[in-house]
């Protein structure tokens, strides 16, 4: 299954809007072979973003349409051989022209990306909620308090203390 299928069957985005969304997400967090993590345009992560951001989609879609128009216009003027470069620049244009939408999309993306099993595994995190297992935290070295104790009281006396 690819992301287009997921989005097309379940979501309100048009095919063009889906393509624009994936382009922005891929530019935000691309996949990494070194860290063995997917990009934010991974189908599972995209589906999670759309689910988490369902209420915000009406804000997002006009900006994605504008991005598509910008790319089309750039391609017409630059020629197909420079399309890839134009599309990189297009994402920069998107961030500059729609900073609030870019910020919203970034927040949604981060919330979904960093709870993906593959990403958590790459960060040596167990893919589970905190409860009920919890976590271990070391008790620490309490001898660090020795100099504080040695210094003595620091409170401010009043007439009654």
């Amino acid at each position: 299954m690819n992301s287009e299928n997921i989005i097309s069957s379940d979501g309100p985005l048009s095919a063009v809007q889906q393509r624009m969304l994936r382009r922005v997400l891929q530019a935000m967090i691309p996949p990494s072979e070194v860290h063995q993590v997917p990009g934010a345009d991974d189908p599972t992560i995209v589906a999670a973003i759309l689910m988490a951001g369902a209420q915000q989609l009406p804000l997002l879609t006009p900006a994605l349409d504008a991005l598509h128009t910008y790319i089309e216009t750039s391609n017409d003027s630059a020629g197909q051989d420079r399309a890839a470069e134009s599309q990189d620049l297009a994402v920069e244009w998107f961030r500059e022209q729609h900073p609030e939408i870019a910020g919203l999309l970034m927040a949604l993306t981060i919330q979904c990306y960093y709870r993906d099993d593959r990403v958590m595994a790459s960060l040596d995190m167990e893919p589970r909620p905190p409860f009920p297992q919890g976590y271990e935290v070391s008790d620490g070295d309490w001898s660090l308090l020795d100099p504080v104790r040695a210094r003595g009281p620091i409170y401010r006396p009043t007439n009654n203390s």
Binding site: A52, Q111, Y114, P127, R128, P129
Partner: peptide, 10 residues
């Protein structure tokens, strides 16, 4: 409470 789910931070 959120800590019971994977999306607890969100």
């Amino acid at each position: 409470y959120p800590s019971t789910t994977r999306d607890f931070e969100a």
